[in-house]
Design a protein around this nucleic acid. Sequence first.
DNA 1: CTAGGGTAATGAAAGGATTCAATGCCGAGA
DNA 2: TCTCGGCATTGAATCCTTTCATTACCCTAG
Lengths: 340, 340
Amino acid sequence: MTTEARRKRASISDVARLAGVAVGTVSNVLNRPDIVAPATRARVEAAIKEMSFVPNAVARQLRVGTITTVGVVVLDIRNPFFTEVARGVEDRLALADHTLMLASSDDDPARERKYLQLFEQHGVVGLLVVPSGPDLDQLLEVQSRGVRVVLLDAPAGSSGLSSVSVDDEAGGALAMAHLIERGHTQVVMLNGSHDIRQCAARLVGARRAASAAGLDPEAAVREVQLRALDSASGVEATLALADAPDGLPSAIFCVNDLVAVGVQRALRLRGGTALLESVAIVGYDDIDIASELAVPLTSVRQPTHEMGYRAADLLLAPESAEIEQVVFAPELVVRASSAR
Amino acid sequence: MTTEARRKRASISDVARLAGVAVGTVSNVLNRPDIVAPATRARVEAAIKEMSFVPNAVARQLRVGTITTVGVVVLDIRNPFFTEVARGVEDRLALADHTLMLASSDDDPARERKYLQLFEQHGVVGLLVVPSGPDLDQLLEVQSRGVRVVLLDAPAGSSGLSSVSVDDEAGGALAMAHLIERGHTQVVMLNGSHDIRQCAARLVGARRAASAAGLDPEAAVREVQLRALDSASGVEATLALADAPDGLPSAIFCVNDLVAVGVQRALRLRGGTALLESVAIVGYDDIDIASELAVPLTSVRQPTHEMGYRAADLLLAPESAEIEQVVFAPELVVRASSAR
DNA sequence: CTAGGGTAATGAAAGGATTCAATGCCGAGA
DNA sequence: TCTCGGCATTGAATCCTTTCATTACCCTAG
């Protein structure tokens, strides 16, 4: 059985020859077994087993045109926020017997472009994309060629794409308003590149909250840009702050929880638990372990699973369905990290 | 440009017609631009742009046979251990200009089977699989049909597959020996199904360490089986232990860090920080945030990124390469959760 | 005994890109 | 003027499956 062969996959016509029937009949056994006579069917099935034949999905797809795979491009596969979203997508797709191909663009527009191209060339039925930059042209082009596209975690505005997102300005405002209420008037925000819309929007929201409280927005929220959005750059940035002439601020707003974890790590490294407890920290995403940290993290929660689920829903909607913008509201979860 | 069309992708012959050349010429422009006369090439390129033609990768693949996609099946995409491994895979594949399709089997052999089938039908060049059960038959079959297969996080033994794994018995032994040294002679292990090899092996290792220390292995390591390997079931199991007649043990060994996080959460729920600090906990995987928890977690570290990288390496090795078993050694990282 | 109806099986066409043997053409050399 | 070499282009064959109009066959009713 596993003797030689190997060189080449058996094809439907090999099976047909072995079973002594026409290729069409084999195809029928595969796809509409009920219309072929039991005896013939048995013979064909035996031949299939004998040759350990696996239908070539590529050829099938070429002929049939359609397929049930959805491409998902996220910014960073290691960020629990995205895997939670992906999970929501997967759960929804499973209901429709579709499958998911996941890729991670690493915030890199070139990689994003490459993956989009790859997915499109492979004829996916649709794409769910967390765009790495503000440029939606490629996505619009892809959509104009008949691939369904839904933006994830970014509002599409009037661009003509559907989207599922969270109001990031509101999230930034929630975080800042909370810190102001706790008495902090000078906050450092550890942020990512403004090419990442979420980062820009959260800053805008934070400054808006500062204005609303009668503070000078620029002075109240000082931005520090990170190289990346993970815990390592959180550590790095915090150490740099500590070493700077101004020293550490009384409060730090982090663009996501991983960064906040890094901040906590750096503070502990520098000044132990005392220092760690003296700086107020607010994160973003409310990842699973935010509540289990040494100092449980105040964070802005987004309905991750639901976002993914809903996005997949939009993608699977009938062709005729309208372009739709779904915007979820974020929610602040207060924990010890922002207590006095 | 984005006017109507939509109905159908342009094909190479549409382009050929528009440019007034033969299909073969268009194909040449696409794949070997240097051999076509500049004037012709320009004309064809204009036609391609005009029709916003995207080559159909499916047709190409059917003809050419080969492809540069690798399928990866992990147990749970939300587990940082697996995403870190996936990251290592991705990094290695990127060097070879290959791409990764990720799927999550959810510990469910049926789902695993489905994904394997899907990937194989799509003609992936290879598969990296974290098997959900002990049954490798399907994988062997797939391999016998010419798809390269590498087992991830599971030793293939003499089955004829390549594999990259960590010595889980050694890991279990490390954890238990450490707890014994700290004076714990009755440990509860929160474990997953023995169908998951890692779970079974870690228990075996723990009991081996108990024996080596002169303890009765069965009594020293009491096993409690979990429904799933996430923090929620850690919470659930811990609450059940607390409510049981025997009460909580002095030490808990968790089959992974997520479970350990759940244990900590449950302990805090039940008895606050005091209770939390009175129970020794050892986790497994040393995920990024293990060191940042309320009580930093002692954990068994595995070289995740390197495992993924190495596995991809094996997969990309020349056809002729030998079957190879790579076994990494785990390492114990001691933190506060297992202090007295 | 024939016509007609229904079931089973057939096999050619289609789908889009690549490949390669064959053709066309042009200019240079005889 | 004729021939030959080399470059550019052509278009049929191929990859494997699905689809569907057609054929083959058997049985029953007239």
